[in-house]
């Protein structure tokens, strides 16, 4: 019979739906069928995966109707072929803890000067489109990092829930790389970083001009 599959990851991108992926075990070259089964805390009933297609091969997608929070899902995957079948170890998931948002979008960098000619850089960004932060169901926190283009060390700054940040301490003539990522408040994991954004600080960007 096929060896037991392994559930490798479950993720919710916006705290409304979630997907789990599994890795098949060796199947001896036999055509093998996979069935994902789950039960929910406090219920005896066992359900089958509602959607094997949306998230691609070896996956199960749980839409809003099949996604509950603050409740533990007990998930297993069964591999079956002509020689027999085998079941994965159970995987326990509370969707509250597997939220990993997409990266922020619309990152903009703008060089500005204050009334008393103090130069600074304004960074703005927007939450990932899938994330409904407007209703308050999902609250995101942000962190940005930057470093001189040829530098090694990133400077990382946690900015909380705001979607704008002003930087005053940049060196004239330097070119900087900036990235931002986000995470749900409390539980879940950081998104990937946004793609690198570059900003060239002009040479006459003297901070001592005050």
């Amino acid at each position: 019979p096929p060896e037991k599959p392994t559930i490798i990851k479950c993720r919710s991108p916006e705290k409304e739906t979630f997907t789990c992926w599994w890795k098949p075990g060796p199947d001896g070259g036999q055509p093998t069928n996979y069935t994902l089964l789950y039960s929910k805390e406090g219920e005896e009933q066992v359900y089958e995966c509602p959607d094997y297609r949306t998230a691609g091969p070896n996956s199960c997608y749980f839409d809003k109707k099949h996604t509950s929070f603050w409740t533990i899902y007990n998930i297993t995957v069964k591999a079956t072929n002509e020689m027999g079948s085998n079941i994965s170890d159970p995987h326990y998931v509370d969707v509250t803890y597997i939220v990993q948002p997409d990266p922020p979008v619309n990152v903009t960098l703008e060089l500005k000067k204050t009334i008393n000619r103090k130069p600074y850089l304004v960074l703005t960004w927007s939450p990932p489109p899938l994330a409904d932060v407007r209703s308050g169901w999902l609250t995101l926190e942000y962190e940005l990092r930057l470093k001189p283009e040829e530098g090694e060390e990133w400077e990382t700054i946690f900015v909380g829930q705001q979607t704008q940040y002003k930087m005053f301490s940049l060196n004239p003539g330097k070119k900087y790389i900036v990235q931002i990522h986000c995470k749900p408040d409390h539980h879940g994991s950081w998104s990937e970083w946004t793609s690198e954004k570059y900003v060239q600080i002009p040479t006459d960007f003297r901070v001592k001009d005050m």
Partner: peptide
């Protein structure tokens, strides 16, 4: 600990909708 909270008798919303 699963399914044994004294507040489980309170019906609480389990999703955004």
């Amino acid at each position: 600990a699963v399914n044994s909270c004294h507040t489980s008798t309170l019906t609480t919303p389990e999703d955004k909708e």
